[in-house]
Computed example of a mutant assay.
Amino acid sequence: MHILQLFTALVVGTSLGCTAASEASEVNTCTVMACGNPGLNGLPGRDGRDGAKGEKGDQGAGQKGQQGFPGKAGPPGLEGPMGTPGLVGHKGQKGETAATDTFQRQVQALENRFQALQAEFNSYKQAVLLQGLTVGQKTFISTHQHETFASGRARCAKAGAALPCPMNAAENAAVQELAKRGSKFAFLNINDIQTEGSFVCANGAAVRYTHWKKGEPNNYNGVEDCVIIIPENAQWNDFSCDQSGLIICEF
């Protein structure tokens, strides 16, 4: 009984409170609050429409970020107008003149080299001539070698010379002097290999001067086809071409 009276008083009090509040304001309403557990939240409503765009704000005071990678190159632009022509350069040297100057320098270098070689050759020539004897346009030089007629002739030819073929007494005396120095008879460039008894110089020239020893030439044993000069008396003697004799060269 006591509990029922308490519940009835609570309901009546609540109703009186709501009526008073309704009379004070027409807008506010009063809902009877029932006792019990709260209900579940409903689904969220739809987003509202975007509002008007606001004004641009001030630039921030933060540090500038790093520059990004460059983008792709754009299409080439239109060709610009031609620039102002530059000043005319100095006139160059003609090609032919330059080539001629180069050629002349090369020729001069060759001439200098030739003169140096010629001087060196003359020096050697003088040294060689001191060991030989000169008569007129001929110079006779001993090789100090003892060889056969064929070997000696080849040695002289390699030096641009030949075995001696005296054309007068003076040339014969010069050859004799070199033979005496070598203490050996020396081959002359005279033979009758082609025709027995017909002596000629090896170059085919006729022998215009002779100085045979008495009784010579005699072609002893039929093998004496070359000629030697005897150092003691400068006389000639026919001799075997295969024997060894002093080799003197005539330049």
Rank of each mutant, 00 (worst) to 15 (best):
M1E: 13
H2S: 10
I3H: 15
L4Q: 12
L4M: 09
L6G: 09
A9Y: 04
G13A: 07
T19W: 04
T19P: 00
A20P: 00
A20E: 10
A20G: 14
E23L: 12
A24M: 09
E26R: 12
V27K: 08
V27N: 12
N28E: 10
N28D: 09
T29H: 06
C30F: 02
T31Q: 11
G36L: 09
G39M: 00
N41D: 10
G48L: 06
A52E: 13
A52H: 04
E55W: 01
E55M: 11
Q59P: 11
G60W: 03
Q63I: 11
Q66A: 14
Q67M: 07
Q67A: 11
Q67D: 07
Q67I: 10
G68R: 01
P70K: 11
G71A: 09
G71C: 03
G74L: 08
P75S: 11
P76H: 06
G77D: 05
M82E: 11
T84F: 07
L87E: 12
V88Y: 03
G92T: 10
E96M: 03
T97H: 04
A98D: 03
A99M: 06
T102S: 07
T102H: 01
R105I: 07
R105M: 09
Q106R: 11
Q108R: 07
L110V: 10
E111Q: 15
N112V: 02
N112L: 14
N112A: 12
R113C: 03
F114H: 05
F114Q: 10
E120Y: 08
F121A: 14
V128S: 13
V128M: 13
L129N: 13
Q131A: 09
G132Y: 05
G132F: 13
L133R: 07
Q137T: 15
Q137H: 12
K138P: 00
T139H: 06
F140V: 06
I141E: 00
I141H: 02
S142G: 13
S142P: 05
Q145L: 12
H146P: 00
E147T: 04
T148K: 11
F149C: 00
F149N: 02
S151R: 05
G152S: 10
G152I: 09
G152E: 07
R153S: 15
A154Y: 07
C156R: 05
A159W: 15
P164R: 02
P166R: 04
A170F: 11
E171K: 06
N172P: 00
N172E: 08
A174D: 04
A174V: 02
E177W: 03
A179M: 02
R181T: 05
R181Q: 15
G182C: 01
S183R: 14
K184L: 01
F185H: 08
F185I: 00
N189E: 13
N189A: 15
N191S: 15
Q194K: 15
Q194L: 02
T195P: 01
E196Q: 13
V207Q: 13
V207E: 07
V207P: 01
R208T: 14
R208V: 15
K213A: 11
K214H: 05
E216H: 09
N218G: 11
N219C: 01
N221K: 06
G222H: 08
C226M: 01
C226H: 00
V227Y: 01
I228N: 08
I229W: 01
I229A: 04
I230D: 13
N233I: 09
C241W: 03
G245W: 00
L246I: 03
I248E: 00
I248Q: 00
E250V: 01
